[in-house]
C-alpha cells in the first residue's frame, strides 16, 4: 500500500490542505475560508478532503502516515491533528515551491496578514524579510477595500485588468488608503481604475517595504492568496520588468511544503479522518502565578486536555 501525507496551512484568512503521495504529487486539495475559527475550519477541510476522496473513489486506498501543519494557527491545529511537523510559513513555502520550481531564486508571497520575500540560492533559503506587524498591503487590506467598493474579493483581479489608467492610491496604511479611495471615487474615477490602483498600490507597497534592499533575481515566483489576483501579478511584472510565475497551485505551496517535511521526518503515524467528529475546545485564561499574567491557552479534546502553551515560566497554577 502506498503512503500518503497530509499538509495543512491555516492562515488568517484561508485554510489550505493537501494530500500528496510519496512522489510529492498532490492528489487531493481543498481551499476554504478560515473565518476566524481555525478549529472549525480544520474540521471542515478534513471532512471536505474525505468527501473529495470518496467522490474520486480513492478513500479506501488512502494511507496517510504523516501530518504537517503550518500557518499562523499551526500550533493549535498541530495539536488537534497530532501532527509530526509544525513548521513556520517561510520554510514551508520555500520547500513547497522548490519541489515545483527547483531553480527559483525569489519567492514573493502575499497572504492574508503577512507578506514576505524569500531569497533562495542553490536551493537553500539564504535570506527573507517579512512585513512588520502592520497588515497594510496584504490580503486583509484588499479584502476590506473590496468590501468598501461592494466588489467580491475574487473579482478584484479581473476588474482591474479592464483598466489602463490606474488611480494613484497610497497603500502605506489602510486608514489613509480608505480616505484616498473615497476621495478618488468622489472626484469621478471609475471603479475599474480605482481597483487597478489598489492592485498597483499593493505592489509598490510590497516592493518598498518587504522587498526593500533585496536583489530580485530570476526566476521569480509569486504566491499566497493574493497571487490569485491577476491585477497584482500584472503590476509585479511591470514593476520588476521580469517574468513572474504564478503556479496554478500557488495557494497550496505552504501545505505542500509542510507535507514534504512530514514525509522527510520519518516518523510515521496513521492519521484518521474521524477528527471532524471529535469535540475540540480551547480555553484561554490568565495565569495568576506572578505579575506577568501570561495568557495560557489550553486545548481540550473531548473534554481531556491535550496541549497547553503561553506561559513564560514554570509558575503557572491554572
Amino acid at each position: 500500500m502506498s503512503k500518503h501525507y497530509l499538509g495543512v496551512d491555516i492562515g488568517s484568512i484561508s485554510t489550505k490542505a493537501i494530500v500528496m503521495d510519496e512522489n510529492n504529487n498532490i492528489i487531493l486539495d481543498k481551499y476554504i475560508w478560515t473565518q476566524a475559527n481555525p478549529i472549525l475550519a480544520t474540521k471542515t477541510i478534513i471532512n471536505d478532503l474525505k468527501k473529495e476522496a470518496e467522490d474520486k473513489g480513492i478513500v479506501d486506498e488512502l494511507n496517510i502516515v504523516g501530518v504537517g501543519t503550518t500557518g499562523s494557527a499551526r500550533k493549535l491545529v498541530g495539536s488537534m491533528l497530532d501532527s509530526q511537523v509544525v513548521k513556520n510559513e517561510i520554510t514551508a513555502h520555500a520547500i513547497g515551491t522548490l519541489s515545483i520550481y527547483p531553480d527559483v531564486r525569489t519567492i514573493l508571497e502575499i497572504g492574508g496578514q503577512d507578506s514576505k520575500i524569500i531569497i533562495i540560492q542553490d536551493g537553500v533559503v539564504v535570506d527573507y524579510a517579512m512585513n512588520t506587524l502592520c497588515a497594510a498591503g496584504t490580503g486583509a487590506f484588499l479584502s476590506s477595500q473590496a468590501q468598501r467598493l461592494g466588489v467580491k474579493i475574487e473579482d478584484l483581479g479581473d476588474i482591474s485588468l479592464k483598466s489602463n489608467n490606474p488611480s494613484k492610491i497610497a497603500a502605506k496604511c489602510t486608514v489613509f488608503a480608505e480616505s484616498d479611495l473615497v476621495h478618488k471615487a468622489q472626484i469621478g474615477h471609475t471603479k475599474e481604475d480605482i481597483i487597478a490602483g489598489l492592485c498597483k498600490a499593493v505592489v509598490s507597497n510590497y516592493l518598498n517595504n518587504v522587498g526593500k534592499g533585496k536583489n530580485i533575481y530570476d526566476k521569480v515566483v509569486f504566491q499566497g492568496g493574493v497571487s490569485k489576483n491577476e491585477g497584482v501579478t500584472r503590476y509585479f511584472k511591470e514593476a520588476l520588468q521580469k517574468e513572474v510565475y504564478v503556479d496554478k497551485n500557488s495557494h497550496l505551496m505552504g501545505a505542500l511544503g509542510v507535507a514534504i517535511l512530514a514525509r522527510k521526518s520519518d516518523q510515521e503515524k496513521k492519521f484518521n479522518f474521524d477528527i471532524s467528529e471529535q469535540d475540540f475546545i480551547t480555553k484561554g485564561s490568565e495565569c495568576s502565578g506572578c505579575s506577568n499574567n501570561c495568557e495560557i491557552i489550553k486545548v481540550y479534546k473531548n473534554g481531556n486536555i491535550i496541549d497547553r502553551w503561553g506561559n513564560r515560566c514554570e509558575n503557572s497554577k491554572t
Binding site: K87, E89, I90, T91, G123, V124, V125, V126, Y128
Partner: peptide
C-alpha cells in the same frame, strides 16, 4: 514565526 524561520535559514545555509 520570525525567529523560527531565521534559525531555519541559518541551519539550512550551514548544511548546504
Amino acid at each position: 514565526t520570525r525567529l523560527e524561520s531565521f534559525v531555519d535559514v541559518i541551519t539550512y545555509k550551514k548544511k548546504a
